[in-house]
Design a binder for these strands. Structure first.
Lengths: 212, 212, 212, 212
DNA sequence: CATGAATGAGTGTTCATTCAT
DNA sequence: AATGAATGAACACTCATTCAT
């Protein structure tokens, strides 16, 4: 039975992921309200009714999309920070670049904009996202900043605030891409943008013997 | 009679502003698609039909909200940049603080998040916003950066990119407040946040090795 | 007072006619349901509210349009039939041509199509129209046919039916002009059409010594 | 089970025809603009939404009504003309009588009045009707007239004009029935009317002095 | 498991009608 | 008399959700 109809079995297992993948694409493209479940189903190659075999409602689907999309992202970052040997400036640079490569290359890149758009309509989900993603992401940056300040490499800025200040341009780069940037409203070469940001931020961070 | 039952004339004058004010609140609260025109009308104390005496469509109302809310702020900013006498660093600091006071203190602060959420579904609005707000806002920052670089006060960063990099944290402060921040997901003291950002950014910008 | 503000007086007198004239044009152009009272008022150069000083409702206006438009049309026809000296064939020809010139040149030409379109929604008005216009119009044709048959000029057709059979193409010419003809769906040169009709009808009517 | 609760399949097959039938009745009764889709659905025993499973819009429904109702009638007419063996006068007589039986005996008879009423407000429908119905109907009459003239049976009238002149009374018979005739404004026995018309028209058409 | 036909609540928009000025 | 701002009922159309097959 396992070998006789493997595709059916496999299908059954894979369905939810296929559905959330299709939903992610459409939610990112059109937003939650403007996405029709019929389109999600069509993109996943199933019928509208099938969606309801796996998700109780549009809202449940949305929650699944966010949850599935997010879990795998943050682990590597923690490994990097744990094991990095070079300067804290280099570590910050590397972390942000890695993150960009992992998320920016993907439909997942639309999630931050999606969460921002829908947070108020789904407060519990926002809380979940905050606990699961944002808090952990902040932790990574916190460790880098504390590492840098502790070693005398960075100035003693307000760490909790600096975390968000420093990450804000990176988020905006992504948010822009999935909102006005998608309407032909200009935009940036990510490379140049990230370079400029890191240049400015690290110039702002690093402690120098400027004035004697 | 003049004060108790405001004359038709006066009412007619005031209506559009009352309506856009009500609309701004609801658009910011619920988003464009989820806002019912009937609710906008009710909040302004009129009937649904009355809305259509002043605005041709929901989209036109949205446009008016943007137009009335944001354009005056940009004009003030332009005046400031035109007439400022002190250092470019101070000018940047002042512009951003002014902007924060004007926009962050009232419902207008929700507009950036609103535009980001709705841009892809209403490309004409996005184009309008881009032309009316973003382009002009960038121009202000461009002038400050060029002024600072030209006078040797700032390092020669890539201006077009730096504009957005520098403004990104300010935008994120607002976006956060109107999305996850509204769900009890933490957030920042704006004062401290802006202080930290300007501290970092100006540290990053100013050319320090000029003075031995 | 009569001389001091004559235009006001005259205006007051003329208003209803101006309004029904404007309404006739629009009813004929768009039909009853699709005509907006605001447009009627605008075309008459007054405000929407003014309409209601003269007519209780859209329906009342419609009734007035039909009644005013119709009364003056039929009198001349009766005079013609009363006094005509030539053959009955010539009389028929002349009556139809006259009617065409009087009605076809005018916005009144749209009334038959209008009545046909709205009769079922305004049955009392239809009855009025039937009594006032159709019955009298038939009477004219009846007299001509009886005159012709009585004099041996026409064959002894069924008079009551022939009346309508003979008038039908004339009506259709008008109805077409105000319906599909207005959509670029072809149509006829009225001259040729009427000529062909009269040619056929009189060929059909006149008694000839065909078969010995 | 098969007969009591008709299977989904069978239902699905029958639905469009049930819907167009209900729509035809209501369009004919109230006109296009005054017909509510909810009433159409109710008359067909379904909900409003179901209509949209089968027709994209009110206009599409209208188009389907025309299409399904009239086209088969024209095809029958074409078959008749193709295969008819007798005289052209008899053919004309037969065609018109057949047409009357097929169209005049059911709700389809209201379509000409419907088209006339709505043509100007829905030019695309008018164009569609013109192409689909009028042009083809004319073609049938054209062939009969040319056949008769070619064979010396009919006089050499202007064919293009005569087509419409000859069909006009038949149309008027229907138009009357569905407009003023429905308001108790008199009317004709169709048998007598058609007889009188054909009598007159064929008397007008046939070349009588051919046989001495 | 999977389908897709059916539902019906919901909303943007129009327009005849009213009435304070 | 005349205005035109305000009303609110009405309707086409959409789409999440259900359920018989």
């Amino acid at each position: 039975m396992d070998t006789l109809a493997p595709s059916r079995q496999r299908r059954k297992q894979a369905r939810p992921a296929e559905l959330t993948a299709a939903a992610l694409e459409l939610f990112v493209e059109k937003g939650f309200a403007a996405t029709r479940l019929e389109d999600v189903a069509a993109r996943a190659g199933v019928s509208k009714g099938t969606l309801y075999l796996y998700f109780d409602s549009k809202e449940a689907l949305f929650k699944a999309v966010i949850q599935e999309g997010i879990v795998p992202v943050l682990e590597q970052g923690a490994d990097l920070v744990d094991s990095y040997q070079g300067s804290s400036a280099e570590l910050l640079r590397t972390l942000i670049r890695e993150w960009w490569l992992r998320v920016g290359a993907n439909h997942l890149g639309g999630v931050p904009k999606l969460m921002i758009s829908e947070a108020r309509n789904f407060p519990q989900l926002a809380a979940y996202y905050n606990d699961t993603v944002i808090t952990r992401g902040r932790e990574l940056l916190r460790r880098i900043l504390l590492r840098g300040i502790g070693g005398g490499e960075f100035r003693a800025v307000d760490v909790e605030t600096a975390i968000d200040v420093i990450f804000a341009p990176v988020l905006m780069l992504l948010i822009w891409r999935y909102s006005l940037g998608a309407c032909g409203c200009g935009g940036h070469d990510p490379e140049l943008y990230l370079h400029t940001h890191l240049d400015l931020a690290l110039h702002g961070l690093v402690a120098r013997e400027v004035r004697p």
